[in-house]
């Protein structure tokens, strides 16, 4: 049996009275890539934000690497070094250079040696072909470049687990491929465990080991990628796939 990195059990989330996640149950194995699909507003962002402690949840448990998470801000703060996340908005810190954006976590949070952290950051930047931009400020980057740096910034902490929330959704089309390639590389070469929310169906099909299909805050399907794309079980999922037109 593969090691379960993450287990979510009976998770419920409300915004005030609005019930946005209903009894969510799933787990992710070591090295597995799960894509989270579903129409806009179905609760995908809310769900993965819960997994990083950016949202509170009202019921249920999250177990990470065998430890049940006690959801205090302090615990989450420790865990976030192991659970990296990249968002849709290019959210680099505008007051810091690219290099300082990347170094902030390793040097201030993890108190790594500056010299070593810098070498590692340079290696990572090179891997996304942005070595020349180490001293640039975020505003000098294109959206695609900024998003690649945001990924590097998350990876610099050496997380065990990555969350990607529609990281290509606000990019110009010609920038999308470069960002997706990096995520694919992470999955194939580094065997990174991750949950990916995306609207790029071809990419999802290619990268995913398993698909979770979410609708109105419920997981309607939870199957292998192959099964989901060739033979979806629910009519909702069929409609969704038809509407995506890929």
């Amino acid at each position: 049996m593969a090691d379960k990195v993450l287990e979510v059990a009976h998770l419920e989330k409300f915004y005030g009275k609005k019930h946005v996640l209903h009894d969510i149950n799933f787990s992710v194995d070591q090295g597995e890539v799960v894509t989270l699909l579903g129409p806009s507003g179905s609760g995908k962002s809310t769900l993965i934000r819960c997994l990083n402690g950016l949202e509170t949840y009202q019921k249920g448990t999250i177990t990470f690497e065998g430890q049940k998470i006690v959801p205090t801000e302090k615990n989450w703060q420790q865990l976030r070094q192991k659970i990296g996340m990249v968002f849709q908005s290019y959210d680099l810190f505008p007051n810091l250079t690219v290099m300082d954006n990347i170094l902030l976590g390793p040097t201030k949070v993890q108190k790594q040696d500056k010299q070593a952290a810098r070498q590692e950051a340079e290696r990572l930047l090179a891997s996304v072909e942005l070595s020349d931009y180490a001293n640039a400020y975020p505003r000098e980057l294109s959206g695609g470049q900024a998003q690649r740096v945001a990924i590097v910034r998350a990876l610099a902490l050496h997380p065990d687990f990555m969350l990607f929330d529609e990281v290509t959704a606000s990019l110009d089309p010609e920038m999308v491929r470069g960002v997706l390639n990096i995520i694919e590389g992470l999955a194939d070469q580094d065997n990174m465990t991750m949950i990916v929310v995306t609207h790029e169906m071809n990419f999802a099909k290619q990268i995913a080991d398993r698909v979770l299909f979410l609708q109105d805050g419920e997981i309607l399907e939870q199957t292998s990628s192959k099964q989901f794309f060739s033979n979806p079980q629910t009519s909702r999922a069929k409609e969704f796939l038809d509407s995506m037109d890929f």
């Binding site: 420790q78 968002f87 810190f93 902030l104 201030k108 949070v109």
Partner: peptide, 18 residues
Amino acid sequence: VPRHQIESGKAIGLNRFQ
């Protein structure tokens, strides 16, 4: 300061002071 700035700060493990 936009909310996603705070969130990405949290996402790399910064504590409140940081």
